[in-house]
Design a protein around this nucleic acid. Structure first.
Lengths: 197, 197
DNA sequence: TACGAATCTGAGGGATGCCTCAAGTTGTGT
DNA sequence: ACACAACTTGAGGCATCCCTCAGATTCGTA
């Protein structure tokens, strides 16, 4: 795929950048549903200009979110770099949820994740593949219970996203305690049979 | 408190009932945010009439939700009736979340719960007191880890409410598996130290 | 049956957010 | 300096949901 994108006029390029900055900020503060008019206003640009550059909300998210999701890759790397597979697994989850608790938009994206714009959705799937390696490593080491699958991670993300949302203002960090409870149920030695289906 | 409410005219009483029935149904189907116009329409009544009977959304919720929340009391009773304190604790959680998964409105109410109309909020608090007895009984029996408090139950409800929301259509019952993981972390023997605040 | 009070109705005004497009402005190559 | 394509603007149309109120209707009673 050659770069089919013509070079933007200088003012257009500036406005596009201002929009991306504004969108990144506001999405982090207020989530994926932030009114596009607010984004345009913070960028110091009219709503029409926003629609020139990003014809749909998804287009804007597709331009903003992948960068935020990339932060997750670092967390994954660090987790895999941990010599102890279990500690790495824990570090992954803590890093992941720490990111979510700092960015409303990321929290939303990982919740809706797979119902979203192709760009975002694909990034989520890629992230999940990486996560799978972390999970398997901890299982092979005999530390993580073997019946914990990737879908269970998705479910855990759903769960924690809400804890983060609800406690963000009143008790930030409450999610760490909740995660600790959950982790105690994920150790191999804690495992009891799961309900069938 | 004497009944300060004058008897309604027969048609008014009928309409009030129709509104309550419609609201109960639609709230269960679509959650607490269901448009009031929809409620009026399903009740076969004009929007004005709805506002005659329930001047605010909270008034309507205050009339509808306590009855739904009462279903929870039965769950609590049955849980306390279980001879095994741990089984009772588990039955309580399963009963609670089963109710939530059948009623979008109840799910919302227990999530927002304490940010809500006084009637609903009070019912939530009362429910929480009952739950405390279940928790303590399981702890005294040495089955439930002693560092699990009422606030942790609230957090768990937040978490599961989202799992229920997300999986309701695609994989109803997914919450049971998630709960099983969590429960395995709540057993006394699974307990590891929690992060200090 | 006829009257008055209780009740119902639904058009309509307000708020928010989405998105478009005709007219105006600005960058850029010549 | 000019011309034209590229870009910007923001009013305004659409949709949804909120809530109100003047006028029409209906119930209960005498």
């Amino acid at each position: 795929m050659a770069a089919g994108t013509k070079p933007l006029r200088s003012d257009a390029a500036r406005n596009r950048d201002k929009l991306l900055v504004a969108a990144t900020q506001l999405i982090a503060e207020h989530g994926l549903d932030v009114p596009l008019e607010h984004v345009a206003r913070r960028a110091g640009v009219s709503i029409g200009t926003l629609y020139n550059h990003f014809p749909t909300r998804e287009a804007l998210l597709g331009a903003v979110m992948p960068q935020r999701l990339a932060a997750l890759e670092q967390v994954t790397e660090r987790a895999l770099a941990d010599p102890d597979p279990w500690d790495g697994f824990v570090a992954f989850l803590e890093g992941l949820f720490a990111l979510q608790s700092e960015d409303h938009g990321l929290n939303d994206a990982l919740t809706q994740g797979f119902t979203l714009a192709t760009d975002v959705s694909q990034a989520c799937h890629r992230g999940l593949l990486d996560a799978e390696r972390i999970i398997e490593r901890a299982q092979v080491a005999g530390r993580l219970r073997p019946d914990f699958g990737t879908q269970d991670l998705v479910t855990l993300i759903w769960a924690m996203s809400q804890v983060i949302r609800e406690s963000m203002n009143t008790a930030p960090g409450a999610w760490r305690r909740c995660l600790a409870f959950f982790l105690d149920g994920l150790r191999t030695e804690a495992a009891h049979p799961l309900p069938e289906r």
